[in-house]
Amino acid sequence: MNLEQWQEMLRRASRPFIVEFWAPWCGPCRVMAPLLERVAHKFEERIDLVRINADDSPEVVQALGILGIPTLIGFDGTREVFRRMGMQSESTLERLFEALADGKSSAVSSPSLMERLLRLVSGTVILALGWSNGPAVVLMLLGAALIFSAVYDRCPLYNALALRVKSWLQSG
């Protein structure tokens, strides 16, 4: 898919849809594919699923700022409402589809650019204040936590760990 085709698809979208960026060589994409298809089938009356091969669509990958695959992006009209990077469990996929279908995407939405900036700036200031006060470990931890909260959803390591913890909790 090239950029023009993508923009045309965005313009023509008549209902919410989820885009998956994948590649044939990507292991997590292969594992997630049947889960995604199963959930997409369940919601096929309300949500469209668009699967884009990242290798064949470099323009779209660049335009949307895709940092890794698999990446799922939920769109309501032309508006991006959430973005998830890394493999997702079936229950998470269901939650994402359901939220988008019910128009409650704020419950699963990623932080906005303004929120990220506020967290990054305040986290950095608190981290610096902690460092210059002793260092004060509690302040530094708070600063680090704020900085991490600005980017956690883009962190593949966090996504992989969160997935393991979730599946461990569900099985236990």
Binding site: M114, L118, V125, L129, G130, S132, A136, L139
Partner: peptide, 18 residues
């Protein structure tokens, strides 16, 4: 409102902890 609060908070914290 949110930006104003964060800026105010940062200023107060810098004044106090700084």
């Amino acid at each position: 409102d949110r930006v104003l609060r964060v800026v105010l908070g940062i200023v107060l914290l810098v004044l106090g902890w700084g």
